[in-house]
């Protein structure tokens, strides 16, 4: 039971990624595909953050040793646990995945913006944002490419 609960997040993240990927590969609508892509990328972030969680940890912002917050944090915890896994008497969550995912989120929004801008231009050029309709129009054009020139 405990194993399932403590691995639930990985399974949930896997399903979320699949939901995003499924939308990307199966939907014909360009905008919907971008939404799927955004979900796929966001879920990747959730995987990293799961890896960086430390039980009873706090956000990686240094807590002053003398502050009341530190006392409050320490009150709930097993001193042996704090001594083994804490830094200067406080247990923190791992900051590295947070940094990586900050980067990934920003990269995600950059991709989203460029993708949607292209989708808007596709709509202007083809009159549609449905991939299958655009494909038909493109095929037609390929078949007669150059003949109008």
């Amino acid at each position: 039971m405990s194993f399932i609960l403590l691995h639930f997040n990985y399974v949930a993240v896997a399903i979320l990624m699949m939901a995003g990927l499924f939308v990307v590969v199966s939907s014909s609508n360009l905008i919907k595909r971008m939404i799927g892509l955004a979900i796929f990328q966001t879920s990747t972030g959730l995987l990293y953050i799961s890896l960086g969680k430390v039980s009873s940890g706090t956000a990686a912002i240094t807590v002053d040793a003398a502050s009341p917050e530190k006392q409050a944090l320490a009150n709930h915890l097993d001193p042996a646990y704090v001594a083994q896994y804490g830094v200067a008497g406080v247990v923190y969550s791992n900051p590295l995945p947070h940094v990586l995912i900050l980067t990934a989120i920003v990269v995600g929004v950059a991709t989203l913006a460029v993708g949607l801008a292209i989708a808007v231009r596709v709509r202007e050029a083809f009159g549609s944002v449905e991939a299958d309709e655009i494909e038909v129009l493109s095929r037609l054009e390929s078949a007669q490419a150059g003949s109008q020139a």
Binding site: R33, L37, I118, A119, V122, F126, A131, S138
Partner: peptide, 16 residues
């Protein structure tokens, strides 16, 4: 104009 869907496809595949 076919550059646009091609670029979109490139973006989707590249990002995946």
């Amino acid at each position: 104009r076919r550059a646009l869907p091609a670029a979109f496809n490139y973006l989707i595949m590249g990002t995946i």
